[in-house]
């Protein structure tokens, strides 16, 4: 059963220079117990997409489409209902935990805050015991609850964030670049803790990163975003190993694998920058940077089409299916 269903979601920001479309017609589904990786460069709209799940976008954003969380449309919820759903049904592990924690409150207090808020009947000692338990689940001793964020290392703070996200037993966790600011070694540990908790508790997860290899190791499925659209989607190992869209391939190659001969002689990288939101070129938005672009790419509107078993791509030259 789908925990999260995005149907044709578009997000437009108002700005002094006119409306800026950040997300354009994205549809995604995440089932109970499964995990979806969302990849793309900064500015591709991946964080904006996930911010619609709890309606955390700034007031300048207009969202259209449907965001069904457990079958209920988040976008049309009343404020009271929305607040009740926040953190209890879906919670977030924020990007860069250094700033996502309140610097002047003890972390235990911050973890307990949603528990006390959503489960009014929980007594103070029970809440405290649950905080200790949550910290131990993410590999931290319970006395960390007494610390302030600045006393913890980046990895520890990110673990605290994970513990906090688990506090109210949500059905879905949105992890927004949870490992990006960390050292490679710590990244691996945090990733393992997160993946393990999600697996053991049978939660659904949306994981955002620009690092395709991280996503491939942590998620069942992958969706690659470019200029506010999903350009490729499919099982993660397949997308990673055999991309059906040149952009996914470029993104995968941007993180060379040590020992793989492919990377030794052809240092790869993508020329140019992604288009500014609202200034996407005609046709396939990727064509100005695409190594395989042809004439037709700049004139034909593209959309996500099946390109294999459980696979979709918007590239005109992706394998055709069912013809």
């Amino acid at each position: 059963m789908a925990v999260l269903e995005l149907d044709d979601v578009s997000v437009t920001y108002r700005s002094a220079a006119g409306p800026v479309p950040a997300v354009r017609g994205v549809s995604l589904t995440v089932d109970t117990g499964s995990s979806l990786g969302l990849a793309g460069e900064s500015g591709s709209g991946k964080t904006t997409v996930t911010s619609t799940v709890l309606r955390l976008l700034p007031k300048s954003a207009t969202v259209t489409g449907q965001v069904l969380l457990d079958g209920e449309d988040v976008l049309t919820m009343r404020w009271g209902r929305l607040r009740a759903v926040r953190w209890a049904t879906a919670s977030v592990v924020f990007q860069g935990a250094m700033h996502a924690l309140n610097p002047v409150q003890r972390v235990g207090h911050q973890i307990a805050e949603p528990i006390r808020l959503h489960e009014k009947s929980v007594s103070e000692p029970t809440a405290r015991a649950r905080v200790g338990d949550l910290l131990e689940q993410v590999g931290l001793p319970s006395r960390v609850a007494q610390s302030y964020p600045h006393q913890l290392s980046g990895g520890q703070k990110q673990r605290v964030m994970i513990a906090m996200a688990l506090a109210c037993g949500p059905r879905l966790i949105v992890a927004d670049e949870p490992t990006t600011a960390l050292d490679v070694m710590v990244q691996q540990q945090v990733l393992e803790v997160l993946a393990e908790r999600v697996r053991d508790l049978g939660l659904a997860m949306v994981f955002i990163s620009h690092d395709l290899s991280v996503l491939a190791s942590a998620c069942d499925d992958l969706a690659v975003m470019y200029a506010g659209q999903v350009v490729e989607q499919g099982p993660s190992d397949q997308v990673f190993e055999n991309a059906h869209h040149p952009y996914s391939r470029a993104l995968g190659d941007a993180f060379p694998r040590i020992g793989d001969m492919r990377f030794r002689y052809s240092p790869s990288g993508l020329p140019g920058d992604p288009p500014f939101p609202g200034e996407a070129p005609s046709g396939c938005p990727f064509h100005p940077r695409c190594p395989q672009a042809r004439e037709v790419c700049s004139t034909t509107e593209v959309q996500l089409r099946p390109s294999g078993e459980r696979r979709w791509s918007s590239c005109l030259f992706a394998p055709e299916v069912g013809t």
């Binding site: 955390l56 929305l82 759903v85 926040r86 977030v92 924020f94 996502a100 808020l117």
Partner: peptide, 14 residues
């Protein structure tokens, strides 16, 4: 604009 305020909102605080 600090992130911890977004965290607080995401938790469902008024």
């Amino acid at each position: 604009d600090e992130d911890y305020l977004t965290t607080a909102r995401a938790k469902g605080l008024m």
